[in-house]
């Protein structure tokens, strides 16, 4: 379980998270929606300890993420993360991209790492691209590679940061389909997204972020189709 407890986070004078609390149970899919600059992505970076927090607490399976004594590299193995700008490693083939972390972080044998990487690449539909360099692929394919690369570490949670925002419209579908598949398989996910249809259909709950706080959170269909907070209503009327 991921438990975010009253987290505050500032960049210089700018406070981007102003007391955020959120519990995500194992097997749950939570989507975070909201305008740009509302702190959605920052929350993911804080959960993954890529960004430090100013106050509050984030627990992942009971471990305090930001405590000094926590081994953050070890902790991140549990937390797969996929970025808006996919960030594939351009100097490695698709297979090497996916096999590297299992090999060097989990210290698997080369054969094991390759086997697991192949399996995850097939999982996201890139089984025929193993020896291709990522720069030769479309954004959608690179984003699916990023998902497979994270899955190859067998994470317990997936953090997805606007994974379709940088894609051409015709490539969004293939990535969302991949995420749907993961959700059906029971992967716990926190998705920052601008895809309202995806948030409504795939997630269990939806949280609406407004200026650094969660303005509304509830069952996905209800928040998207029948929001209670006027702020949420205003936001959704604009994005539709």
């Amino acid at each position: 379980m991921i438990s975010v407890q009253n987290v505050h986070k500032s960049f210089g004078d700018l406070e981007v998270l102003k007391g955020v609390s959120l519990d995500v149970e194992k097997g749950e899919v939570v989507s975070i929606i909201g305008g740009s600059g509302s702190g959605k992505s920052t929350l993911l970076y804080c959960i993954n300890a890529i960004e430090p927090i100013n106050s509050g607490k984030i627990l992942v399976d009971g471990v305090d993420v930001h405590a000094k004594e926590t081994n953050k590299d070890k902790l991140r193995q549990k937390l797969g993360m996929v970025f808006q700008q996919w960030n594939s490693f351009p100097h490695m083939t698709v297979l090497e991209n996916a096999a590297l972390a299992p090999r060097i972080v989990k210290k698997m044998s080369k054969e094991e790492a390759i086997e697991i990487a192949k399996k995850e690449l097939e999982h996201v539909g890139l089984g025929d691209k193993l020896d291709v360099y990522p720069t030769k692929m479309s954004g959608g394919q690179q984003q699916r590679l990023a998902i497979a690369r994270a899955l190859a570490m067998k994470p317990d949670y997936m953090l997805l940061d606007e994974v379709t925002s940088a894609l051409d419209p015709e490539l969004v579908g293939e990535v969302l389909d991949t995420l749907r598949l993961l959700a059906e398989e029971g992967m716990t996910m926190i998705c920052v997204t601008h895809e309202m249809g995806f948030a409504r259909d795939v997630s269990d709950r939806v949280a609406y972020f407004h200026q650094g706080v969660i303005a509304e959170i509830g069952e996905a269909r209800q928040v998207i189709t029948d929001p209670q907070n006027p702020l949420t209503q205003k936001f959704l009327s604009k994005v539709r």
Binding site: D73, R76, R149
Partner: peptide, 10 residues
């Protein structure tokens, strides 16, 4: 590239 590497536990 560094963030992505760190996110994989490196």
């Amino acid at each position: 590239q560094y963030s992505a590497s760190k996110s994989l536990g490196m």
